[in-house]
Design a protein around this nucleic acid. Structure first.
Lengths: 242, 242
DNA sequence: TGTGTCGTTTGATCGAGATCACGGCGGGGC
DNA sequence: GCCCCGCCGTGATCTCGATCAAACGACACA
């Protein structure tokens, strides 16, 4: 298994032979029998924006490969306050092994296509295949690193730095081909202002104002609310606090 | 391997035969040869409060079992702002497999005793022993859950809720014997006001004021700055936002 | 062409927590 | 004893982001 520069695994274990070309046949983690049993139980699903994959305290029924789109993981307080605690992009593998019920809500932030498997099948495979467990450990460690990075942002950055950090994060996640530092990047925001606010621990008004500030300062361009152009990513990095 | 109610593993793989009785000989994860090679390379270390185990961007040289004390994991911004992104208590296993250099700083928050092993030894063992990797996956998943819980606190709770949440977290971590919900608990804070502030994304003044508020409201007692008595944990829970 | 809704922006005001300032307490060295 | 220094508490003030309020643009639909 090789790694991309950003730490994502570029070759994920094949978890479904019916998945798209990028995932098909890449990895020798599973033997043909195992692949077959997976393929028999897997199913491709399309989710509309906003669809809930699983809610807090619900029983965990399966695991999924994200084939396209963005899934947000959220936690809420009883009074309705919400915090996004993680984002998952293709080709992430989603699921929480060894646990009966979910501690978080998973929801489609964009239209999402995923390939999902029953809990039992995956857990049986984990027991059989140390390589699969190794893969899961690496992905979990990466998610932990990302979560800790984000804790620094949530706890210690101001609103402008948070928004700048968010734009850089999305740019990297969506555009995995690593550019030289100062090259123009353009991308569509996969989330609404409310979702960005819930990710950053801010309100929509503050997010909007900081985006406007970055626009007026000439750091970014925004078209039709969602399309962002960053002429010089270094100027953005300067405003991200690190 | 069995789990305590709070999700910690009560029986960790033996990683050192010279460690204290609680850790010695508990687990069949490693075979006698492996144990022997570990014992040969392991060393017991005592660290004073404030001692740094590893710094950001430093090469990772080893792994450790915490035998006693509390270790804080921090990330900093270039201008000096700091955020604690994790706390580790005995008998946690500390280390970041599969990575050449550390993304965080690890520092003793109290006096700490640990049993440490060279990187090469542990990584060789991981390659040999799927059970050890399984153990690491479970611990990493637990740390990820804890990090995400804390992201909700950092992003969406106010100062009073943060301090109340912190007290509950410490009470549980230090006093792993699970009490009935409403029984009096008492413990020593393992961290200074500055460290608490760096954990909560607040300033020392705000931490101090919220502790005073809880004291005046009769929710907690504080003696000699560090010793805390919570007569009715439910009253604290009510103020923690969840 | 109006009319509704939803997501967003912008303006005005408020307030929680940061910042600045100072004083108290306790432990260690001499 | 005295002084010093690190940690802590508290008061006064300021500021950033929340809150409240209104309007705008895009789109759907009649």
């Amino acid at each position: 298994m090789s790694e991309r520069k950003d730490g994502h695994l570029s070759e994920v274990p094949v978890l479904c032979m019916t998945c798209d070309a990028r995932l098909r046949g890449v990895c020798g983690v599973l033997d043909p029998d195992q692949l077959l049993s997976l393929a028999r139980t897997s199913s491709k699903k399309r989710l509309e924006t906003g669809a809930e994959l699983i809610g807090e305290a619900q029983a965990i029924e399966g695991y999924s490969n994200i084939l396209s789109g963005v899934v947000k993981l959220t936690k809420g307080l009883p009074d309705g306050r919400e915090q996004i605690v993680g984002l998952q992009f293709a080709p992430d593998f989603m699921g929480r092994p060894f646990q009966a019920e979910s501690a978080i809500t998973a929801q489609a932030a964009t239209n999402v296509v995923l390939c999902s498997f029953p809990k039992r099948t995956i857990e049986a495979l984990i027991r059989q295949s140390p390589l699969l467990e190794h893969f899961l450990l690496k992905q979990t460690l990466r998610e932990l690193d990302e979560a800790r990075d984000w804790m620094l942002t949530l706890g210690r950055k101001n609103a402008l730095e948070k928004v700048a950090s968010y734009l850089l994060l999305i740019a990297n996640a969506i555009n995995p081909a690593v550019q030289p530092d100062s090259q123009t990047i353009a991308f569509d925001l996969p989330m609404s202002r409310l979702e960005i606010a819930d990710f950053l621990g801010l309100t929509i008004e503050t997010v909007s104002r900081q985006l406007t500030k970055l626009r007026i300062d000439g750091v970014i361009e925004i078209n039709q609310n969602r399309h962002v152009v960053v002429a010089n990513p270094n100027r953005l990095r300067l405003r991200s606090g690190c």
